[in-house]
């Protein structure tokens, strides 16, 4: 007999994403899914962000890596509640992994939750985690050609943050080309430039998070 199933392969993953999203709305938690290739500076950006915002907000982090608790330890040192997910070989976080870890937080008390995805500029883009915003970090040593070369990631994210701009004098990264390519691939995407290490450009990023949190609480 023939059965017409017509079911999205990611059905169960997307159900988990909807579950997470509903929970975050109920607890008024503002959630950012942070993605990039390995070494673009996601954890350093988080460290600087936490330092700037920890007096105003209760911040929590879920860290995704194949192995080790290194990133989680860096954030715990700053007093942030952090849960590490080790995917062993897995190339992305999915919504079910997040759903399993959420009971480890008191979400009613968490204002902002960062989901630091596995370092990978391809796979994480396909998985909704239930976040408010998807942000991709691209660091200048990687080259501005990564935007048109990995278009799926940049097309599916709400914001591109160019990191390590303190290195611009030493590498051939064209900011104007990066912004133009992003506008072609994803005209609605936001574009910000920072150096998480020196603090340059961080104010604007921090202001955006504050505004995002206010919008999240108001809904």
């Amino acid at each position: 007999m023939k059965i017409k199933l017509k079911e999205d392969v990611l059905k169960n993953q997307n159900k988990a994403a909807a579950f997470n999203r509903e929970l975050f709305q109920k607890t008024q938690t503002f959630v950012i899914n942070l993605m990039s290739s390995p070494g673009a500076g996601k954890t350093t950006l988080l460290e600087s962000t936490v330092k700037a915002l920890r007096d105003e907000f209760k911040i929590a982090v879920i860290e995704g890596d194949l192995a080790t608790e290194r990133d989680a330890d860096r954030l715990r040192e700053l007093g942030v509640d952090t849960v590490q997910i080790n995917t062993v070989g897995g190339c992305h976080l999915d919504a079910r992994m997040i759903a399993k870890k959420l009971p480890e937080f008191d979400l009613e008390k968490v204002d902002i939750l960062f989901l630091e995805n596995i370092g990978n500029l391809v796979c994480p883009s396909g998985y909704d985690l239930g976040q408010d915003y998807k942000v991709v970090v691209l660091s200048v040593p990687e080259g501005n050609d990564k935007i048109p070369k990995y278009p799926i990631m940049f097309r599916r994210t709400d914001m591109t943050v160019i990191n390590k701009i303190d290195l611009l004098p030493y590498v051939s990264f064209n900011l104007k080309e990066a912004e133009d390519d992003l506008k072609t691939i994803n005209p609605d995407a936001l574009f910000k430039t920072v150096s998480a290490l020196t603090g340059e450009g961080m104010e604007e990023w921090i202001r955006w998070i504050r505004e995002g949190y206010q919008t999240c609480v108001a809904r």
Binding site: K2, I3, D8
Partner: peptide
């Protein structure tokens, strides 16, 4: 699209 459209089976 990425979807399981149908399958055939027997009981």
């Amino acid at each position: 699209t990425f979807r399981v459209e149908s399958y055939e089976g027997c009981d």
